[in-house]
Amino acid sequence: MTVKHSNRRYSEITGRAVLYAILIIVAIYYLIPLVIMISTSFRDMNDIRFGHLIDLPSSFSFEAWRMAWSEVQIGARRQLGLRPYFINSLLITIPAVTISVILGAVNGYVLSFWRFKGSNIFFALLLFGCFLPFQAILLPQATVLGKIGLSGTIPGLVLTHVVYGVAFTTLFYRNYYVSLPGELVKAAQLDGAGFWRIFWRIILPLSTPITVVAVIWQFTQIWNDFLFGVAFSSPQSQPVTVGLNNMVNSSTGEVRYNVDMAGAIIAALPTLAVYVIAGKYFVRGLTAGSVKG
């Protein structure tokens, strides 16, 4: 009896050990690229050339970071480094996120509480926008941006991101609002409040969680975008993803991996920071955007 019992305990313990071992190995697999990326960005080229891929760096400097940020020649661009691209990304992302989230919130509000004839069809039509392969609108969008004089400009990119992001934000807000009791709006109507006052005083104060989700989602999507950035920008308005790609591919002569890695981290830093700070909402956005889509 006791033997059997201890046997069972023994196998249970080994089972747990194997379990943890697998989980940790997988975690290392996910982490290694990040670790290498960071450590490489602080090494100098000699160290990289003669050292190991994974090794304690024999050198430590911010040189690569400085280069990537403000010195490396990217393409034929006059200004050096990723900094101008980074600023472009900010100039694109901030207004695009703001506008698309505001639009999504009021759309969701209408589609949940102020339905009108055809509003469900409208929502269904809009939903498809979440799955649209952007290649299918790339050419007309380029033509239209050219026609209205926004081709290759930051406002043009903002417009594009708003237009193709609003489907997602609307979906987020609508799915959140339909879970609120509709009687809230009815009660407020009887209290004498109108459309906007109900939104400001009742609905918006309840929207913080979904707003965090929507902002994070839009921020990540727009910051990480490459397709629109490369298709609709001029050298003056390219976002950081395009800048990074150009930097990696255009550097003539010797490839400076440390600079490439520092650049990659710079490009990834804002979204990584958001993820680390607000991971819970990030995951919620991912799952809300997909499962309910």
């Binding site: 009791p181 009687e183 809230l184 009815k186 009660a187 009887l190 209290d191 004498g192 009742i202």
Partner: peptide
């Protein structure tokens, strides 16, 4: 709002 009616909702509907 123009009907001047006050209502208690079955689900309360408190803000």
């Amino acid at each position: 709002k123009d009907r001047d009616i006050a209502m208690v909702f079955q689900s309360y509907a408190l803000y």
